[in-house]
Amino acid sequence: MLARLKPHAVPLALFAALALAPLLGFGAGHSLSLLARAIILALSAIGLAVLVGGAGLVSLGHAACMGVGAYAVVMLDAARITDALVVFPVAILAGGLFALLTGAVAIRTSGVNFIMITLAFGQMAFFTAASLSAYGGDDGYTFYGRTSLFGTRLLEDRWFFHYALLLLLLGAWYGGRRLLASRFGRVLRAARENPLRTQALGFSPYPYQLLAYTLAGALGGLAGALLANATEFVAPSFIAWQRSGDLLFMVILGGLGQLHGAILGALAFVLLEEYLAELTPHWRLIFGPLLVLVALYLKGGLLSLPGLLRRG
């Protein structure tokens, strides 16, 4: 039993730490908000990790899917629809649909062109959101309350919200792992290694990549709707391309080799950002070089750190 669990030691430890965090001094309002933000970004980063690590699709527009999910909550709220059973499915579908439509074009390209096209679609979403004056335009939209769950205000309970997020994260991580290990995932990874070879063996990568892109977008939509609930506020800045860059960095910071790298990366990113910002207002001067160092010396991301230390 123990031997079977060993390969999963790191993700299990991560989930255990997140589950115990509220009981171990992270139970105060501010800490829980911070953790909620980290878990939601981790959720989104897992989708991006499937794309980057699994399919080799480096998207610089992933935040747009989150933005679409977040604005779905805004638009429904403005129409006084706040039932979770409506809001979350709509956000997921909206994120997936956005990814399907933009991906259908973007996946026809590869490499730098793919990055540019996803960036362009992301910017289109950003400027569209900024022009939605009915929903606050540039200033954003503030909610009066969170999405209701079965007619209750359970999502406003920070502890409930924390464990609900954790459960979703666990589901996304497990689902992503299963997806990459499946036949679908094998074709996806083969196409990342050598698209022409995969084609010569009878499989066009395009539909596989598009479906992966759509699923990642749907997960992004869910994360966006959750983020809207966590902050009770949505603004175009949620969609800014810097947010896409942050997500990409979380994925690479944690390590592309395994999906829980995205969780580790998101946690490290958010906590470091918070900690450094408390130290000094010029925290970006420290944060930037740190990221450069990781990119230079930790090729496998934080996941490769233990092995590196063991070897000295």
Binding site: R186, R189, E193, T198, Q199, A200, L201, F203
Partner: peptide
């Protein structure tokens, strides 16, 4: 991919196995 589906299986020059996929995955992916 359409040519391959007509029943042609190519073993390319230089082998070109998928480097990060396991042997089993290489065999079963396609």
């Amino acid at each position: 991919h359409r040519v391959a589906r007509h029943g042609l299986g190519l073993v390319p020059e230089g082998r070109q196995v998928f480097p990060t996929l396991s042997v089993r995955e290489n065999l079963t992916a396609t």
